[in-house]
Design a protein around this nucleic acid. Structure first.
Lengths: 147, 147
DNA sequence: GTTCCTGCAAAAGCTTTGCAGAAGA
DNA sequence: TCTTCTGCAAAGCTTTTGCAGGAAC
């Protein structure tokens, strides 16, 4: 086992994920291809090295990595689209408990980056995730009742 | 026809969308329910008023509104998930021509809003869309060649 | 009368689930 | 040996497409 794979292996072990060959290959791929690959891309690119690889294994592994906090999905991981009538610019906050999406005021136009000097920007979105006050207070109630 | 519906009707006509009954009902719903509804919610809530309504009609109408620029989808409208190995915080720019997602440096931690004082924020994302330099330059080339 | 729209059904694409066999501890 | 993982197949969801009947102009 070479040094790279030893490092990847340790990274998995640190997160309590058993370092199987397939898992290390997917992690290695993600480290080397930080271009936001889709499941399809990961599967196709690894098939030559792992001919028996199954797409559901790729899904399994990615979901495992997500739970372990090793990776993130690019914003808007939902399969179900949500629509917004066009009003003033506002940010979105999605509660990970009740799945409600809240609007909040934020001056999105101020956000910029030197990296984008040569890009034509058509729209800007900010998307926060977390827990809303209602769900926070429900959690505290439960703690009081049962703990 | 009451005033509200006259206004909605004009809004559609302004965007070159013929104001059918179904379209006005969907637009009316979106104006009254600015809570980022899904297709399912729109369909279910309108079924009582429009018993013959079909879900594919809702999809048709929403896609039409999107093209007309009357509505937007909440960030991350893709059905295909994309994954990111966790590194420092960065923004995402998606080119609407070549669909490439670029990273850019941005100090996301600075972004905040008084509206979120009582929310627990777990993650922050910024998501820009537009055209990347490569596609911009291709467009200019085409203009030179064909126009 | 001609064009456009609706709504049903079927299909397509992404993701999850169930399960048997294989691999690893 | 016992648990965990892989990979196939099937199913589940969201969304799109084809088409016939109907509505609007």
């Amino acid at each position: 086992m070479n040094t790279l794979f030893k490092n990847l292996s340790n990274e998995l072990i640190n997160k309590n994920v058993r370092p199987s060959h397939q898992r290390m290959m997917v992690l290695d791929y993600l480290v080397k291809n930080q271009c936001h690959p889709t499941v399809e891309q990961i599967f196709n690119d690894l098939k030559s090295k792992l001919p028996t690889l199954s797409k559901s294994t790729v899904y399994n592994i990615l979901n495992l990595f997500l739970e372990a906090g090793l990776i993130k999905t690019v914003v808007g991981e939902d399969q179900e689209a949500r629509y917004d009538i066009i009003t003033e610019s506002h940010g979105h906050f999605k509660c990970i408990t009740c799945e409600t999406i809240y609007n909040f005021n934020v001056n999105i136009d101020d956000f910029t980056s030197d990296d984008l000097k040569e890009f034509h920007i058509a729209s800007k979105d900010v998307y926060f995730k977390g827990t809303c006050p209602r769900c926070l207070s429900n959690k505290n109630k439960l703690k009081g009742e049962y703990l």
